[in-house]
Design a binder for these strands. Structure first.
Lengths: 104, 104
DNA sequence: CTGATACATAAGCGCATGCTTATGCGATTC
DNA sequence: GAATCGCATAAGCATGCGCTTATGTATCAG
């Protein structure tokens, strides 16, 4: 189950923060560490987990590795969420925001 | 972070299966166990985790406890997802399906 | 009241997980 | 070529997590 891997990846607050930081703009692993009180190997391991979960993808640039959000992971979460749309109507405020500027 | 609790709850495949089963219709804990090769205490513990994550809610009926999907958890996931809609356009097939029969 | 049922909780155990330190490896700089 | 930088990986350790068995509590049946 790929969704399980995604949820497992996001279950760690540090990885959640890394993903959120990457969502603000792609950057390399060292830049990600700035202001995050995390060791270099730990960051590397977290990025590996996020990468396997399709939440993040890499792009080598010389000796740097630029990381960015991988839309595939988000699409998979959306797909999972879609299976339960029968339960949305009771509270879809966030959902309405979510689909506001899509498919107008 | 409540979203972290939600992702942590869904990170376990057994809990994911329990949630999926409940999505097909509310039922009590014993009925949930049918065909799931899981002990009664384990089920109770899983339901507790799902309940704390707002993914499931309970409703006592005599000595039975009927469980059902709590839309709030799904709405929270949708809210989390909405924060990253900047990355959707690359692959929104699932999302389009998702919002098809909403707010027409 | 007695027993059974539905469920929750406590305690303990094995395994996964996230961290650390240490090391390796390719790319850049001098 | 030597030193350095950016990153990955290995090994070890402490904690968390999901399971088990055992027990507690509330509801129902007789």
């Amino acid at each position: 189950m790929i969704e399980t891997a995604i949820f497992k990846a996001l279950a760690d607050p540090t990885r959640c923060a890394i993903f959120e930081k990457l969502a603000a703009g792609g950057m390399n692993a060292s830049a990600l560490r700035q202001g995050m009180a995390i060791s270099q190997p730990a960051m590397s391991q977290h990025l590996s987990v996020l990468r396997n979960a399709k939440l993040v993808r890499e792009q080598r640039q010389g000796r740097f590795v630029n990381y960015e959000v991988d839309p595939e992971g988000l699409a998979l979460i959306a797909g999972w969420l879609a299976r339960y749309r029968a339960y949305w109507p009771e509270r879809i405020d966030a959902l309405k925001l979510l689909l506001k500027d899509m498919d107008p």
